[in-house]
């Protein structure tokens, strides 16, 4: 505790970095995976290819992806962009399957009747399809959020790990307390993000029971574990 107080400014800085570096991939995953999932639903043949490709990307260990990206992005190894892009790739890999399933779960007759009562294709998507797929999309986004926050700390090995710095620093100084503080703060960030997502869900989708009880039946794939 004493250590934490003495180093509060450094820890605060790391905390802010951690939040910043994980918020971007979480939002990016959502923005990328929704259109991808729509494409997967629209073009059946692309579906397998798309899901397969992201499935393969998902197998790449995080550290390997962090150091490979500069070769493709032309970035410096210490550029935060590497970590952000890598985490976005994982996020999309988790989300795209779940989101495709979410769109699949919207009954066709609901869509047909929406068209029949006069929704244009665009408004049908925004007002019918997306809201109905929303709860499942949110559930997947929560998994992405938790995974991203926890995975980011590996970025400390290439200088962009947010609170992960407390792990490497604590290890080098043989100071376990620092590592524990890092772990606890990381868990805290994950928890707060999750609560924020739930709150957003309640506001945007007030009809959805799932945002109220996390133990509902439509949970994201249990196997979309943080594999890295």
């Amino acid at each position: 505790m004493e250590w934490l107080w003495e180093n509060r400014e450094m820890v605060m800085g790391l905390l802010i970095q951690h939040v910043g570096l994980s918020v971007v991939p979480i939002i990016a995953s959502l923005l990328v995976s929704v259109p991808l999932a729509r494409i997967a639903r629209r073009y059946r043949s692309l579906r397998g290819l798309l899901l397969g490709a992201f499935g393969l990307l998902f197998t790449i260990p995080s550290l390997a992806l962090f150091v490979t990206l500069p070769a493709f992005l032309g970035t410096k190894i210490l550029d935060p962009l590497n970590v952000v892009v890598a985490l976005t790739i994982y996020g999309v890999a988790i989300m795209v399957r779940g989101t495709a399933d979410a769109f699949d779960s919207v009954p066709n007759d609901v869509l047909d009747s929406a068209s029949a009562v006069g929704y244009s294709p665009g408004s049908r998507f925004w007002r019918v399809e997306l809201p109905l797929a929303g709860p499942v999309i949110l559930a997947n986004l929560r998994v992405v959020s938790v995974t991203t926050v926890s995975l980011l700390s590996v970025g400390a090995l290439i200088g962009n790990g947010g609170l992960g710095y407390l792990f490497t620093n604590g290890y080098q100084r043989a100071f376990p307390t620092e590592i524990i503080i890092g772990v606890v703060l990381t868990l805290l960030v994950a928890l707060i993000f999750d609560q924020i997502l739930l709150a957003i869900g309640r506001i945007v989708m007030p009809w959805d029971r799932n945002t109220r009880s996390p133990e509902s039946s439509i949970q994201p794939d249990l196997f979309a574990e943080a594999a890295h």
């Binding site: 938790v146 926890s150 700390s153 792990f167 290890y171 590592i179 249990l222 943080a226």
Partner: peptide
Amino acid sequence: ATSSFRAVPTFGLLLFIVLL
């Protein structure tokens, strides 16, 4: 347990256990 375990940063856990 399995779903909340996702949130644990494995890197930190590894360094902590090795350190101890």
